[in-house]
Design a protein around this nucleic acid. Structure first.
Lengths: 213, 213
DNA sequence: TAGATTGTTAATCGATTAACAATC
DNA sequence: TAGATTGTTAATCGATTAACAATC
């Protein structure tokens, strides 16, 4: 299926295409040209055609792209029809919010377990799932084989826990700890999310835009 | 201060430099060369030197960079010593978690108000701040002049509220709603955060890495 | 001074844009 | 058919890397 290696910028644009096509579908738009889509998304028509053609020609000359069809194709590329098992570690403020707020199902993922080291949390539940003690992590993994772990744990705990989770068979990390996970195993994928960095970028742009012109 | 326009990739790396330098400082490392820092961060030494030299020469030939000093300089560029007023709209799961979890102070920001349209939430409080009804937003803004709004509201409400907030004097949006804010006013800065897109990118990389080689 | 490492210029690489022939 | 718009190649632009003279 993956005939060539797709560059990171293209991959990062795919979920955005998927979202915009969903909007269009909800607006009952049947077909769209690269020019129109470009205008909506703030991209160039050329770029859109280049991006789609990394995966094959989904359009039709003289017509454009069929919205519903294109959305399904991109969804397929992104794996929204898979059922990837996901566990979440750290049921603090952020962990609970992510469990409740992120629609895992819609994205090909199943959140199947939440863990926290705090014994006081054991027994309570979030997002319809019971919070389990860390001691049960190992047996849970060997039983249910989750593939992705969401890390909502403090910085200091991140690296050691990651190594453990890799040993338990986890192959992907969605990392919210204030720590850049770096894994040498090439089969393990890491997506670091740094909310603080994003805020600082915003702050920088604010202080350095008004005094420009 | 802003002698030239800095490219987006460089700006987005600044908070990461700031974090790594903080780590080094905590480890009592006094000086570091671009080569060593590059190795730690997974960048090239060339890139680090180029990046820093966008802002001026902070290093010393034959010595490297003074960690504490460099961190302070980059912190200054990022505005961590400013006191930018921030309000947060939407005190649901995610809103509460961001209010509690993100260290605004450390990043030059002051979270000074939380608002929600749900009357049931009015009177309760999060992160030490009372949740206020949306009706008070206008008067609050004219009184306290916040500069940034964090949007943790549903997609459908985002665009209308944004227009309103701009009228109230807000110049920066940290947007967590599932909607790409696009503002035509060039003085208004938008930072869209799409957690779902990040998860999908991770999922894509997982499905398309193992079957490569 | 000699060694190390920066600041900076030039070379390379990759991503975006432009152009246009193919074709629905 | 004529018009529209893709798929795709070539040209441009920008970011990263390499190289090295400057200098601490």
């Amino acid at each position: 299926m993956s005939k060539q290696v797709i560059s990171t910028p293209v991959i990062r644009r795919l979920p955005r295409y998927y979202r915009f096509l969903g909007d269009l579908e909800r607006e009952n738009v049947e077909r769209i040209s690269s020019r129109e889509l470009a205008q909506r998304m703030g991209l160039s028509a050329s770029q859109i055609r280049q991006d789609f053609n990394c995966f094959g020609g989904f359009g039709q000359q003289g017509y454009g792209y069929h919205v519903k069809e294109l959305r399904e194709i991109i969804g397929g590329i992104l794996g929204v029809n898979e059922r990837t098992g996901v566990i979440l570690i750290g049921a603090g403020n952020l962990g609970k919010a992510i469990a409740a707020h992120v629609d895992f199902e819609k994205r090909g993922c199943n959140l199947i377990g939440i863990f926290d080291s705090d014994p006081l949390l054991a027994g309570t539940s979030t997002a319809g799932l019971p919070i389990m003690p860390m001691e049960t992590l190992n047996s849970f993994c060997s039983q249910h084989h989750p593939q992705v772990a969401v890390l909502c744990i403090p910085k200091d705990a991140a690296q050691a826990l990651t190594d453990e989770l890799i040993a338990f068979g986890i192959g992907g990390f969605w990392n919210f700890s204030h720590f850049d996970l770096r894994v040498n195993n090439p089969d393990v994928i890491v997506e670091n999310v740094h909310l603080g960095d994003s805020l600082m970028t915003l702050a920088y742009c604010m202080h350095h835009s008004t005094d420009e012109e």
